[in-house]
Design a protein around this nucleic acid. Structure first.
Lengths: 126, 126
DNA sequence: CTTGAACTTCAACATTTGTTGAAGTCAAGC
DNA sequence: GCTTGACTTCAACAAATGTTGAAGTTCAAG
């Protein structure tokens, strides 16, 4: 009975920050806004788990897609506590879909201003 | 010699707002930040010109592309005072290019998280 | 144990992109 | 020429997304 099975690597704020490139202040901010959760040590320090590295990276990507913190929270709402690979895949799939939707919307607007052409009337230089 | 040539329609803030769907406060904001310019009446009220309708619409689209006010100001820096059709076309071309660049960058990031796959390590459930 | 780096909370600040309201002025129709 | 709606400026507020700093605590190494 050597292993208890709970050899989970616990990460400090600094560890998570280094693992993701996100500033410690931002990590705390994300936790305060429900995007990350942590346990606490006896001395009240945060300890994150490995999936939080992934969550944090997803946050970064989702922000690039244009999602707000609130929207990312909603996105994460579907994610189980200890996600399996399939769960991550499903999540990124949804994220990609959302990105596609937004890019298509943008493309439509761009098409309007290039081909629709009524955006800018010429000054009637008679 | 009937026309003086200066039958330019002059637009109040409200006119421009109605023509573009942008709030009057936003119009003033854009002017304060150098995206629009106006003349003033004897009584100190703003009077815009037709091209400003187009500029304002471009501002809206550029924001959807993700440009900041400062970036839009830079974009407009190339635009002559009284732009011809070709100038508008050039501008929208640049805007579309920028949008494409941004979408390609985003696409790369998305590809990384879907195919690159090293984003999320599986918890080693032995 | 002690020490130094890393952690804690909390409040204040920073930036962007505007909106709102107060107090006052202008323009246009009757 | 008066009235009324639209305009003016300016300051304060707002919401999102964090960062910074102060004051104090904890963790790990020696």
């Amino acid at each position: 009975m050597t292993g208890t099975g709970t050899d989970q690597a616990l990460l400090t704020v600094g560890d998570l920050s280094r693992a993701t490139g996100v500033a410690p202040s931002a990590v705390r901010f994300y936790e305060a806004h429900g995007l990350l959760t942590s346990e606490r040590t006896a001395g009240n320090q945060r300890r994150f788990r490995e999936p939080d590295v992934c969550r944090t990276k997803v946050i970064t990507v989702a922000q690039r897609v244009g999602l707000s913190i609130a929207e990312i929270r909603t996105l994460f709402a579907e994610l189980p506590a200890d996600p399996a690979l399939a769960d991550w895949q499903h999540l990124t799939e949804r994220l990609v879909e959302e990105a596609d939707r937004r890019m298509r919307r943008l493309r439509r607007v761009l098409d309007e201003i290039t081909s629709g052409a009524k955006l800018c009337e010429l000054p009637h230089t008679s």
